[in-house]
Amino acid sequence: MNTEHSQIKTAVEPKLLPGDFAIWFFIFAELLVFGIFFIVYAVVRMQNQELFNQYQDTLNREVGAINTVLLITASYFVVRAIHAIRRDDVSRCIHWLSASMLAGGGFLIFKSLEFYGKFSAGIGLETNTFYFFYISLAFFHFLHVILGMIILGAIIFMAKRGKYSAQEHTGIETGASYWHMVDLVWIILFPLVYIIR
């Protein structure tokens, strides 16, 4: 009876967050910072609607959409990598993580070209309020993508040295959680800055 009771109790217990628990505090802190940034953007836009609508049209929506698909795809590849390592398939895991880095690299290339276009046209933080927010938000996120790529690279390096298995892959889950956070932020940023008017 006791065993049965404890089994039922175990079944309803919440599952643990994947990866190192500490990363979740970092992720939440990052989300708070971006969340405040998004809200401030929306509030400032409320007082500068015409300016924001006018300069939003100067952004390349195609590149924004392609970058969204690239980040979503990179996140999807990371999920497949996690599934692979849970099956103890290290080579498949490395394959998916490498594919994720390629997609992330694509994002960085497109975003760099977008920044280059703006900066070479003389546009900067001081151009106007819209560009102040666009450049600040996009560049802050850009830095997070770079950090995510460094983490993915480190995970691939460790995986190739046999550090991960079906039993022990906390490092991959930790890096994956961070990478998904970067994707999550962009999913809000893209419609907010590029589309909604």
Binding site: K15, L16, L17, S75, V79, D183, L184
Partner: peptide
């Protein structure tokens, strides 16, 4: 992303 990719669904 939160529920399925980050696997927050079913956690505390």
């Amino acid at each position: 992303i939160i529920g399925d990719f980050m696997e927050v669904r079913g956690t505390s």
